[in-house]
Design a protein around this nucleic acid. Sequence first.
DNA 1: ATCGAATTGACAATATAATGTCAATAGAGT
DNA 2: ACTCTATTGACATTATATTGTCAATTCGAT
Lengths: 157, 157
Amino acid sequence: MTKTKRTPVGEALTDMVLDLFRLNSLLLTAGDRLVAGLGLTSARWQILGAIVAAERAQPVAWLARDMGANRQNVQRIINDLQKEGLVAFETNPHHRRAQLVALTDKGRRAFDAAMRLQAPWIDGLSEGLSVKDIQTMQRVIGALRQKLESNETIEAA
Amino acid sequence: MTKTKRTPVGEALTDMVLDLFRLNSLLLTAGDRLVAGLGLTSARWQILGAIVAAERAQPVAWLARDMGANRQNVQRIINDLQKEGLVAFETNPHHRRAQLVALTDKGRRAFDAAMRLQAPWIDGLSEGLSVKDIQTMQRVIGALRQKLESNETIEAA
DNA sequence: ATCGAATTGACAATATAATGTCAATAGAGT
DNA sequence: ACTCTATTGACATTATATTGTCAATTCGAT
């Protein structure tokens, strides 16, 4: 049959990961719906968030690395955002080609508006959950991320 | 600033979700690498899994619904899998057009091989984690899924 | 200064995913 | 039998994401 021997934790983790994929996709589509009216998508929102989180303007490639996303896709979306005036490029004193990406006022407003929509939505979603459980979950996620990020190239050989 | 009022649980959940996105993408790429040698991808693997889980042959649209994925994409991948002989279509006694999808021996072998690769990999990944924490996480995921799935169309109006 | 490795943006090519439309079909209700 | 509605597969179109290549540039080592 499909049974292969696994440790008990391995079993539990296997089951959990499958559920996690579903949750991830549900969250993304919910996010898309939430901010669609602002001309945003989950992907665009996430990139605006990365720019905000950075606090200092960064080149595209750095943002992409911070997000664990691929460079070219972030570049494409940021180019779109720039055409729509949500972000602007600033000249980089340290690098002639790698321009710095900064939020425009319009971009900041769009991001703030998204966060204002997010607040009641996430509050509703969190009803009935305990902070403690969520933090446990976050701790597990963190541990898994760390392992996966360090193993990065192990199987690639 | 970016601060908008949220409940404490809402705060925690917000942070957690961001980490979760990263973990999801790390798991997918790790999965791709893991089964690449078998001619599989994470997406193909997941679909084979859905077919196995169903136990009875089902039409494509049902599999897609079970997976929470969109119909056409599942159709495309299943067509690919069929061309490569991993799945086969069976005539559906109840519906002339909606053929049933079943694993071929080759498909079963590929899936089993994937699961054999998965076992040591997931065991390694789970080292140092507690079954209890993982189950807590799975419980939270389940609660969130349920909310998101029931709200499905609330914002869509 | 000069070399070489690494990073970057641009672009092309491809792969993957999503959306909309259509006719065929099936099943429920009458 | 008949009609109405929902589901299905097929197809076309568009959107999104990935991969590879290139020359320009930066930076570290020497």
